[in-house]
């Protein structure tokens, strides 16, 4: 039998982490408990974060919004601040897993799992999210892109916890576009996903573009070349086709059971053509 702990405060948690450094940590359980069943986790103890209020909820802090790591996807979807300022995150959360998965799973869990297919990752990358990492007597803030190191790998050290995500509000973008290609419309793991935020002028010119792809590399892929190929140009089939070709060279997908490398590469580019829908 494994011991299960439900600390109620971060102080309790630090103490637990000190006493039981080998324990596996989970919040929603939608990833860790699946791995536990599959025998991929052998820790003798489990620490569940769901009762730590400090880790939950959305705080509007003026220029910034702070999201507690153990905030469920469902809570985020219903949050008016997130809805108003980060519609691209809402779009991604809407197609994450399924309703019960969204009721249980948390944003912190999605990040710590660090799957290249994690649905919240591409939007958080284009939003230049920062994460807050804390430990017993310290804390730091770092860009998400420095937190996630590879498939399933983060920069979290022993005794450290991802406690929150910080997003800067920005009025720069008037196009918020997320598309996920999966094998079905729900309960799907992304084969390719694209998050794009654009500032498009009244004349249809892309003034600013931030793009990120999921599931086509060891982590989320960003490409300055593609962004540059779009910025300053009118949204047109021609512009997007050229950018798509660049995107196809920027990504580094693999073959797996869900799709082949070539398909992922092609579609990573093709998804840019969907932006034609925003042409003026």
């Amino acid at each position: 039998m494994r011991e299960v702990f439900l600390p109620r405060t971060l102080d309790e948690l630090w103490d637990l982490l000190h006493r039981r450094p080998e324990a596996a940590i989970y919040a929603g359980g939608t990833d860790v408990l699946v791995k536990l069943r599959a025998g991929l986790i052998t820790a003798s103890g489990l620490i569940c974060l769901e009762r730590i209020q400090e880790l939950k909820g959305v705080r509007d802090q003026g220029d910034e919004v702070y999201i507690g790591a153990a905030t469920t996807h469902r809570t985020l979807l219903a949050d008016p601040v997130i809805q108003e300022h980060f519609p691209i995150l809402i779009q991604a959360l809407n197609v994450l897993g399924s309703p019960p998965i969204r009721n249980m799973g948390t944003i912190g869990g999605n990040l710590v799992t660090a799957s290249p297919a994690g649905d919240t990752l591409p939007p958080l990358y284009v939003l230049d999210a920062e994460v807050e990492v804390r430990w017993g007597d310290g804390a730091k803030r770092l860009p998400l892109s420095q937190f996630i190191l590879g498939p399933g790998k983060t920069s979290l050290g022993p005794g450290q916890l991802l406690t929150g995500v910080r997003l800067r509000k920005s009025a720069d973008y008037n196009v918020h576009h997320f598309e996920k290609v999966g094998q079905r419309k729900a309960l799907a793991i992304a084969i390719v996903s694209l998050a794009a935020v654009l500032q498009v002028s009244d004349s249809g010119r892309i003034e600013k573009a931030r793009l990120a792809w999921g599931s086509v590399g060891p982590t989320v892929i960003r490409s300055v070349e593609v962004e540059s190929a779009l910025e300053g140009r009118i949204i047109s089939r021609d512009t997007l086709t050229k950018a798509a070709a660049l995107a196809q060279t920027a990504v580094s997908p693999i073959d797996d059971i869900r799709a082949g490398e070539a398909y992922r590469r092609t579609v990573a580019g093709n998804l840019l053509l969907r932006l034609i829908n925003y042409a003026r």
Binding site: V4, G29, L33, R37, L46, C48, P100, I101, M104
Partner: peptide, 26 residues
Amino acid sequence: GSGECGACTILVDGQSRLSCLMLAAQ
């Protein structure tokens, strides 16, 4: 047993949860 089917759905505080991905302590 792994959150892919919903057959084990219960309501916890009124929200649907997958009882195969919850431990009794919760």
